[in-house]
Design a protein around this nucleic acid. Sequence first.
DNA 1: ACCTGAACACCGTTCAAGT
DNA 2: ACCTGAACACCGTTCAAGT
Lengths: 224, 224
Amino acid sequence: MAARTRKPERRGDALSRERIVDTAIAMLDAAGEAGLTFRALSAELRTGPGAIYWHVASKDEILIAATAAALGAATAYVPDDTPENTIRAVALGVFDAIAAHPWVGSELSRTPSPPPILRIFEQLGRQVQALGVPQSEQFAVASALFNYIIGVGGQHAALARAVAPETDRTEYLTMVAAAWADLDSRDYSFLQNVAGQMREHDDRVQFLDGVDLIIAGISSRWRT
Amino acid sequence: MAARTRKPERRGDALSRERIVDTAIAMLDAAGEAGLTFRALSAELRTGPGAIYWHVASKDEILIAATAAALGAATAYVPDDTPENTIRAVALGVFDAIAAHPWVGSELSRTPSPPPILRIFEQLGRQVQALGVPQSEQFAVASALFNYIIGVGGQHAALARAVAPETDRTEYLTMVAAAWADLDSRDYSFLQNVAGQMREHDDRVQFLDGVDLIIAGISSRWRT
DNA sequence: ACCTGAACACCGTTCAAGT
DNA sequence: ACCTGAACACCGTTCAAGT
């Protein structure tokens, strides 16, 4: 993903904004959000923390750039398909980006809408338009889709943060299911009932089910 | 909200878990998440930081207890109404709690599901059941509602964090609308189109529109 | 049992000084 | 122009010592 075709770069490892962000992404993937510190980052880059500040203004800027890069692939490609399928494709793009980089999920609800997030909203909005939703409702409907997608992302990030990075997914689901099954059945009868489904459910399929539910709502309302 | 009917408490201000959490909530409301530090908290409570650690194990515990307290009122009362209206009531309860305490929005996607969050899921699940959604789909549908609600909360928290606490809401919306109107019209035609609606929209109404959209999806799918 | 406050091991960020 | 690394102003948390 790093541009190899720029000017030759005296050595392979001159410090640059791009290398800083790439290294930050690698560290975030490996050790989570807590693992990215200026000290660790500068050690990895074999410099002092001050050198990094010559290329970026703050840690926030690094985080925003890293999020943009991680979402970039997801938001760049736009299929030429029905509005419904395009919405699904955009949603899955975000979902898969977060699955690959769980820290992206927390950034989504932390930053003041940098470009890649605006692009997601834009894409959803266009499809909402194409579905024939009247002007006055387009913003509300696009927001509903957007907030659902972002919400799932945030929950996934919370899960990733809660358990050790190496924890097996099914092992984790078994833990949660057991915890739910242990709840007081008067107060939590629903959770107890579905605790079984927890173990075998497929996040990705369930995520798409939610998207489809909103799409179904749209067509039932404006396509009678 | 603090229990006044316990034992008399030698003075009015003995240190206690309850008073720590109440004070933390007041500080979070006043100065946001960045304003809550152990030093500031212990200054406010007129002790050293060590005293606080005798009553709570960590800052996280304080944050979780504060979130539980802020959401408590929202999740306690359950109206005896149609499933649709109960879903709306639960959703609005969360929305209003976050409007009153923006920091709750970030906690929602940060903590590993403490009780008040499980209660929200439970409540939504029961209504989904009552709406006649088949067993096998109940978990997915309840998750869709839950994630949408949490997602909106997270976005609100992000907004609250992005602007100074005193910033006027309409002033802020005007800023965002202006920023959207300035975007390249080729890349962001949708955002430009709806930038106008941004200024006059009512968050709360729009939030409910999204809930209704999901409800509409549910009935169109399982109520033919 | 409960509180005190100095100390520890960190942060992000700055800045004089180097090349 | 770019890098160095010590220093600054913070964090959350611990812990010997007090009452």
